[in-house]
Design a protein around this nucleic acid. Structure first.
Lengths: 247, 247
DNA sequence: CCCATCAATTGATCTAGATCAATCTTCCAC
DNA sequence: GTGGAAGATTGATCTAGATCAATTGATGGG
């Protein structure tokens, strides 16, 4: 919470250069109204490996991710883990129907966030009704992504799962600009570990690694040091992801 | 769309006895405002096995399910199917971020619905702002359910999946009233086929059937003619669902 | 009531992916 | 650089659940 002169500075500092601005819920707020947004929120920096949302903890705050990436996961009592999503620039976290968070969020590398207390969002929504619609749209679009993830986990083979993952990573924001060119190679950073990918796809690290190996041998990808891949044939990978066989 | 005298009749007819009223989005609308709701919507009856939402078709309408149950699924090009949910009384269908439906909805037995054209919902939301919040809450709660479904499909064994399914069926409305008593037997109708259950849980019919058989032998359930189960030990099933071993 | 049809169960095998077990990289901290 | 620790790859085996194959049981039309 900031006021007066420093608030204007804060707006310039926080929103002026915020690369998440156009992607996130903030994009329904006019420039002149930004101070209200800044006043309602606080900037949070989370260092690599730290958790900023705890599954089951009281849900006091919403977050907009403004830098870095995070993994979102749930645990079973015996430690089995399912990653329910990877958050990126502009993603809105902490929407929950209940009074507690449904997942844990951990920073993959250093992460910056804007934190909005629950109560502050209520006030903002009252003042900027379009925000409510934006929040709903956010939830709906997440819901659609979830439905395709259910298909991945319920019905796809290991090959199809990894291909789905790679294609998804190549088209952030729910396939917005799709794959620019189906044939054009695309290089992606993979800030998550093989273990994370395995827990996302319902596989083991060994299977993930072997499948990466296969794709490499088949000339579909090339790997640079485990945290960067180039999709050499995005179109083929996309077909594999959808269970389509080319001959 | 109805007017005048017949509208009042329609309200009495449609909403007065609607058992979904208290569960659905309609529960944020005062009785006196119901006519607006009725005027904006039309009643639809769908007979068993018919689809009323088609994956990929232009999303013109929203639906509130007011009677019966439906299965929601997506297909892969080769016909593999993933059931993404079973809709029941009061459920709101057709929320989507894109211009097309993300899944197909098919009636399990005869189904009645209230259909709201997209445009009508926009007008209603403008007139009744609380509706917007209700819609968002609906989407958020669905999102939370999805996250636990990802765990089911990604990390649970066949036993755990079927137990999860049975416990979920026993506590409709996202575990609202939970299991009244963990030890009290509960009898459930199962309007869906074994194939549907398999496609919901990412298993084959054979595995579903075998696992039902095991639960029966272990005295955890008793089955009446494939479309009705009694959970004899809901607490134990719940523990199995969560991977907790009692000894 | 009885047959036909389709769903569900049960049994026998097979296999994709898990598990167990070494290496081999990568990349810091020193 | 250099040692070492964590992560990734690769290989050998095992197994839960898939697949293939009957058989049994429901359900509904004539």
């Amino acid at each position: 919470m900031e006021t007066g002169r420093s608030l204007m500075d804060a707006v310039r500092e926080r929103c002026g250069r915020c690369s998440g601005r156009s992607l996130s819920i903030c994009n329904v707020i006019d420039d002149q109204d930004l101070p209200a947004l800044v006043a309602a929120s606080s900037r949070v920096v989370v260092s690599s490996g730290r958790c900023f949302i705890q599954e089951g903890a009281p849900a006091h705050d919403f977050y907009v991710l403004t830098g870095g990436r995070a993994k979102l996961f749930t645990l079973m009592p015996d430690g089995r883990r399912q990653i329910v999503g990877f958050a990126e620039l502009g993603d809105f976290l902490g929407l929950t129907s209940s009074e507690t968070y449904a997942f844990t969020a951990e920073a993959l590398g250093d992460v910056t966030l804007c934190r909005f207390p629950h109560s502050a969002i209520d006030r903002l929504v009252e003042r900027f009704p379009r925000l409510r619609g934006r929040l709903q749209k956010e939830a709906s679009s997440e819901l659609v992504k979830m439905q395709s993830r259910l298909m991945v986990l319920g019905r796809k083979t290991a090959r199809e799962r990894l291909a789905s993952f790679l294609v998804e990573q190549a088209s952030p924001c729910c396939g917005h600009h799709a794959l620019h060119d189906e044939q054009e190679p695309i290089t992606l950073p993979l800030p998550m570990s093989r273990t994370d990918i395995a827990d996302y796809l319902g596989l083991t690290i060994e299977t993930v690694s072997r499948t990466f190996g296969l794709f490499r041998k088949e000339g579909l990808i090339s790997v640079k040091g485990a945290s960067s891949v180039t999709l050499l044939a995005p179109g083929v990978l996309s077909d594999i992801a959808n269970g389509i066989k080319r001959d």
